[in-house]
Design a protein around this nucleic acid. Sequence first.
DNA 1: TTGTATGCGTTATCAA
DNA 2: TTGATAACGCATACAA
Lengths: 349, 349
Amino acid sequence: MLLEIYLCFTELQMDRINIKKLAEELNLSKSTVSRAFRDNDDIKADTKARILAKAKELNYQPNHYASNLREQKSRTIAIIVPELANNYFSQAIHGIERIAREHNYHILIYVTDDDYQKEVDFIRHLHNGRADGIIMSASGEANNHSYLNKLGGKRLPLVFFDRVYEDIDVPRVVTNDYDSSFKATEHLILQGCEKIAYLVVNKSLSIGKTRMQGYIDALEKYRIKFDDRYIVDCSNSYEENDVIVKEVLKDLKPDGIFASVERLAFATYYACYDLKLEIPKDLKVISFSSLEIAPLLNPSLTTITQPATDIGGQAAQLLFNLLEGEQVVSTIQEVVLKSKLFIRNSTNK
Amino acid sequence: MLLEIYLCFTELQMDRINIKKLAEELNLSKSTVSRAFRDNDDIKADTKARILAKAKELNYQPNHYASNLREQKSRTIAIIVPELANNYFSQAIHGIERIAREHNYHILIYVTDDDYQKEVDFIRHLHNGRADGIIMSASGEANNHSYLNKLGGKRLPLVFFDRVYEDIDVPRVVTNDYDSSFKATEHLILQGCEKIAYLVVNKSLSIGKTRMQGYIDALEKYRIKFDDRYIVDCSNSYEENDVIVKEVLKDLKPDGIFASVERLAFATYYACYDLKLEIPKDLKVISFSSLEIAPLLNPSLTTITQPATDIGGQAAQLLFNLLEGEQVVSTIQEVVLKSKLFIRNSTNK
DNA sequence: TTGTATGCGTTATCAA
DNA sequence: TTGATAACGCATACAA
């Protein structure tokens, strides 16, 4: 009976070990115990060791919410992305995660499903102190995002990567999209393409626009008449894209496809299989992509490969500059990373 | 001078709007304001509306750390995975995220890089109240994980998916790996393979063992002698796997490859390209995978496809049963989802 | 070097 | 229906 009570008691104790109980166990005050977990405080090495040992024994961890309420910072960054089950974004998050871990920060993940309202809600919500900063690839280019100017300022540092809002002045990491798509288009032209379709998911997104401009300018350089029917607005749904791409292939009979995201290159491949079109004979395909197995596709896919992991890492670095930097830098910081063209069989003559 | 102080003051105010200031603005008490943000409390509809309007105007959000310190729960779940830039895990996380969002929970991501010590550290750390529960795919099968039995219990609910520790009694979501690999091996045999190599990343992992047993039993059924040189222990590094796989192909000359994870199938493809081996003529390949573009590979890859998103979703569901369930269920809950065999050209006669 | 006391921003209990 | 007050667990200024 006594044993039972004892067990019950210790279980309860186990259930919630806190600084007070730990202090009692050690016959010390809470403040002394607290000091043991901070680096720069005055505490006898001996005492500190005793405390840490006991803490480990009892599995004590300073309560995160109490600490952060006190210190007004969370050592947490939030990542907001349009989608998760996506090569590019998972690599970028991987890059962020690595840097965050080095800095002993934790990461929260938020997925907007390309829904601008969710993005707004997430950001608004995050102003409750849950995160010290945000790294985001934007979802709602077409919308009014002035709310970010109010919120996004010094209160909660924000860094963009890849998909940015041009009108919001925050640090950002992008790739040299204009050059890359110019070169991509040029490559198709030099391989003999004359009717090049540009597939894009959301052409109002700045990233879509930049890439499109490279395409347009390359056409111009080679005196190929621009025809806006060849700018094809696609969606995020496999089924819809299948219909859209097949229509384009049948109606416009392009001899080159420039896909602004890898998903659209896949849609093109599937469509060609179904329509018995042969890549690269009937149609050459090039795509922005960070797919590591592009060489294994049938045919191997010519890609403009973005350094996705690096992009994430740099974005994290920019955020930590804001969070931990001594001096406030007032100019916009923009990091431009280079994509690289890998020529493979999908664009071979 | 006064102006400066005033500006400074308002800036500070803007910087940190809290319940007290909001209450002062409204000439109400903190408690009344607090009530406006809870559902079931007594408060005049009129007052509540006034409060919420003002809160929106001032961009007030109840401080997360204070709330959670008070309520002793965080509405946050932690996900621990071996790696992130990986098709399977990013799909699984996507599944978890969807369910978590439905429940209004946030997610923290931790990546172990297959390092058991990191896993232990993460879990230990998470006992500081930062998360209400953990969903994990394990990294350290070979190690002693009894620490989990102490920690993992009621204090911080834990759910496994995919890679589990058999000796830890917590809910789990797995796939029918034994059956699937039996069928996969059988499929290779029926396609005429006689020397089938099984590629595995960590054969001491239970998931590797289960899959291996299916392979072994299928061989036995068809009276093919088991030779443990055909069990090939690979790594997580591209370079190392390239060497390992090529050696196997050259030395053992298998006519079938069964890859326990998709990365090893890719390594096999690359090796075959280099060694001028033709799939499926010289070598048939089948792989566990959740790759959506398996049909686009050259040749299209026969897969045992795991419902990765679903696995994540179910794991989240199990965790929410623990977190929100009224009754404590004492038996182990195990959810088994079925993988599906998709026969494609890599195993065609 | 250690202890005491206060407050971080909430929510819950109780009283009004 | 609302207000005053005490905790939640911790970190720090100050006292000893």
